[in-house]
Computed example of a mutant assay.
Amino acid sequence: MMKYVAISLMVFFSAACSSNKNPNSPEQGKEDTNAKELLQGIWLDDETESPLMRVEGDTIYYADAQSAPIAFKIVRDTLYTYGNDTTYYKIDKQGEHIFWFHAITDNIIKLHKSEDPNDSLSFVRQELVIPIYNEVIQRDSVVTYNGTRYRAYVYINPSKMRVIKTTYSEDGISMDNVYYDNVMHICVYEGKKSLFASDITKQMFDQVVPGDFLMQAILSDMKFVKVDRNGFHYQAVLAIPESSIYSITDMEVSFEGNLTITSTK
């Protein structure tokens, strides 16, 4: 059995927030280009005077540098955003300098347009991500089986492969956060003879973990466990960034160099 923490709850919450049937779906109405034009610019929260979002063309940029830009449309009185999830917000009031809308939590978000050019500094985009590792990590395990000495290596390599995780602010605004995935490399040697060497990516686990989970997870860790008559045993950890949600999966490399991936029992 795979070890999950609250995966079902996360998937249910995401679906509830983004998959509701809306009678004003984009397929049932024409995009309001005038409303889109009014939304161009930088918008500040009425209560805090802090920049919340900048709108350029068809894209919303959030002041949170961790959040990815997100596409949007306005149809009738509804704002649709298209990121990892499709989310809609009912617009309560819109004008040249005012924009009020209902968040997922049913809070009314009240914004006004900025007139200070310095507010654009809040939207300077940086490659701000939270990698599991900042450098290559090497783990070398020396083991003996039936009188033969083996070395089982694990290399954890940060990559530039992006993982998008949908989060919701306290006010109920959907945001897509960006993280980097890792590529693991495992290899087994008998003396100088290589028995196995391969890169491991999270896509290789698509038969043993749910697709919704895998899409937002990072291959966060890999450990050598033991060697026995069946071969060399590893455990891979796939985790949702900045959460306690994870899955542990077994990997086995046979003495003939064959790799098998199975759910943890």
Rank of each mutant, 00 (worst) to 15 (best):
D77M: 06
F224S: 05
D250S: 14
A217R: 04
K30V: 06
D171T: 04
S263N: 13
F123C: 03
M175Q: 15
N34S: 12
V154W: 01
H185E: 08
V142E: 07
N118I: 06
N24T: 02
S174C: 13
G57S: 03
I240F: 08
M2G: 07
E252F: 12
Y89N: 01
Y234D: 00
Q126H: 12
I261F: 01
T78R: 02
Q40H: 06
S254Q: 05
Y150G: 03
L121E: 14
I130C: 08
N177V: 13
V136Y: 04
D92T: 07
R125H: 06
T167L: 10
E115L: 06
Y4L: 08
N20Q: 13
T81G: 01
T87M: 02
S67D: 10
V11Y: 11
A197N: 12
D85A: 10
E47W: 08
L219H: 05
Q138N: 10
S8R: 07
I132S: 08
V163H: 08
D58R: 07
Y189H: 12
Q138C: 01
T166N: 15
F101W: 04
H233M: 09
E96P: 00
A71C: 01
D116Q: 11
I173G: 05
P210N: 11
I108P: 06
Y62V: 01
D32R: 09
N230C: 12
A217K: 00
D116I: 04
D77K: 12
T59N: 04
Q138P: 00
N118L: 09
D85Q: 14
K192E: 13
W43Q: 01
A68V: 04
P158A: 04
G231K: 07
T48V: 07
K21T: 14
L121N: 15
T33H: 15
S25G: 01
G41Y: 13
I74T: 04
G95I: 00
S247V: 07
L111T: 09
F232I: 13
K226A: 08
S198Q: 15
V55A: 11
E256M: 03
K21E: 14
D212P: 05
F101M: 03
P158K: 07
K21V: 15
T81A: 05
I104T: 06
M1I: 11
I186L: 04
H97F: 10
Y88R: 00
T167R: 12
D176M: 08
S14I: 06
L121G: 10
G41D: 10
V124Q: 07
R76Q: 15
K93Y: 15
L52A: 03
G83V: 02
K160L: 11
G147R: 02
E27S: 05
K193V: 03
P51N: 00
P241D: 02
C17G: 12
I109H: 05
R151M: 08
I7W: 15
I70C: 03
S243T: 14
M184F: 02
K160W: 10
A65K: 12
V237K: 14
M10C: 05
I132H: 11
Y155S: 02
L214E: 05
Y4N: 01
I186S: 05
G231E: 09
I248N: 09
M215C: 10
V183I: 15
Y62D: 00
E256L: 06
K90Y: 08
D206P: 00
A217H: 01
K160T: 13
V227A: 00
T166D: 14
A68R: 11
G41H: 11
Y155E: 09
S247Q: 12
I7F: 15
S159L: 04
D58W: 03
S120D: 15
